[in-house]
Amino acid sequence: MKKGILVLLTTTLLAVSFTLSGCSGGGEKGTLQFYANGEDFVRQGFVSKDGWSIRFDHVYITLADITAYQTDPPYDPHMGDNINGKVTVGLSNAYTVDLAEGGEDAPSILVDEIQNVPAGHYNAISWNMVRAASSPSAGHSLVMIGTAEKDGQTVDFTINIDAECSYDCGEYVGDERKGIVSDGGTADLEMTFHFDHIFGDAETPLDDELNQGALGFEYFIGYADGQTVDINMTEMHLGHVGEGHCHCLCD
């Protein structure tokens, strides 16, 4: 009889304790989705700073080690430090996505999602741009395939870039606030890629810092047949979070 009471008491204590642990703040879970976005520059094409009208058929980019963080104080990419997250969740696989997929009004590309992540505000994200292990962009971290036209001249191009880069970014800056996971809800984060930083933008003044740092399209004509282009991708500032900046390091 006594033994039965002891067992009952112990079981009750353990059950109550586990239940309360499950009800703590860490118990609220939701889903976090990760998107990649080449913006309208990739989907609709644009005119480079040197007057080439560029349209993309495919833009393959390979992303790995995609990780989201809840940081406090919020991560500041301008400082260039590592991200220290109070809560960290990540994807272990590498993903090759085609940023030009879909039509001109196509939505961003869903890379993957993680379910049952702790609720809260994921206000920082990091990822690596790495060389793909398999086709369609095997051996390259970024492959841009398309057509460029200027003054009646047409160039079909395949531009291969092998540089591997790490991007540490703060909070998404855009029309909406992203990364706020509520209990049972779904939130998303976006890895945004600004290709006007590589080719320049005719709609932006030539003396603007964006065009000053961009290479233009003619730089790539000699490599348009698929030769690998060796450019300083750190200075291209390709990766963003919406309009928000990232700290970038490339090999």
Partner: peptide, 26 residues
């Protein structure tokens, strides 16, 4: 073009990340 700045106001900044804490009862 855009950016976001984070400004701490007052004492004991409240952080979003409160996961992992236990109540006294627990």
């Amino acid at each position: 073009h855009g950016d976001i700045v984070h400004i701490p106001i007052g004492e004991g900044s409240t952080g979003a990340g409160s996961a992992g804490g236990y109540t006294p009862l627990q």
